[in-house]
Simulated scan of single mutants.
Amino acid sequence: MAEVNSQEGVIHSDKLSYTAYPRSVSLARRRAARLVEEWGHGDQAGAVALLVSELATNALLHGCFRGRLFQVELTLAGGMLRVSVSDPRGELLPEPRPASENEQFGRGLLIVQDVASSWGVEERSVGKTVWCEVCVE
């Protein structure tokens, strides 16, 4: 959605960087749920928390180097809430894949596809941003 990408029409925005430790995923998830609630869309707080958790976990497992941060950004504009997670590894672009029944990992992007109205990847000069959007109207 073009409206969410530009600063025009932005109602609320939040951006925070996290260290590449597992605890950061739960911190990002709780922060996202609280903000969505404060922004008046509590009915979507659980969905947004799940999306942040999946994307942040992917950044932690596949996108971070030791000592580098990942960043979570939430933007509310034009009836859409965008979750963006940026990490320093641009050479590893995510793709959904089926996971076998015995695999512990591998379902994150399938969950994102199911819960979000859209999602994608933006390459950056250093790293990448994986984003998804949820309709809040």
Rank of each mutant, 00 (worst) to 15 (best):
R23F: 02
G106D: 11
E123V: 09
H12A: 10
T19M: 09
L61M: 08
S13N: 08
S117Q: 12
G42D: 13
W39I: 12
L61T: 04
S13R: 14
P22I: 05
G106L: 04
G40Y: 15
A47I: 13
S118M: 09
A77I: 03
I11G: 02
G127L: 00
V4T: 04
E3R: 07
S26I: 13
E37D: 15
P94T: 04
D14R: 04
A59H: 03
K128Y: 01
E91Y: 13
F65R: 14
V121D: 03
Y21T: 12
V25I: 12
A33K: 02
R82A: 08
G108L: 02
V85D: 03
L27H: 06
A45H: 08
H12M: 08
V72C: 06
S6N: 12
S117I: 09
R82Y: 03
P88G: 03
Q104S: 12
G9P: 00
A56G: 15
S6H: 14
N5T: 11
W131Q: 03
R23T: 14
A59G: 02
V126D: 04
C135F: 08
S13C: 06
E37G: 12
L76I: 10
L81M: 08
E37T: 13
S84Y: 05
R124T: 08
T129M: 08
T129R: 09
V121H: 09
V130F: 02
G63A: 05
R23W: 11
L109S: 10
G42V: 06
E123Q: 13
Y21N: 14
W131T: 05
D43T: 02
E95D: 07
V72G: 02
I111M: 08
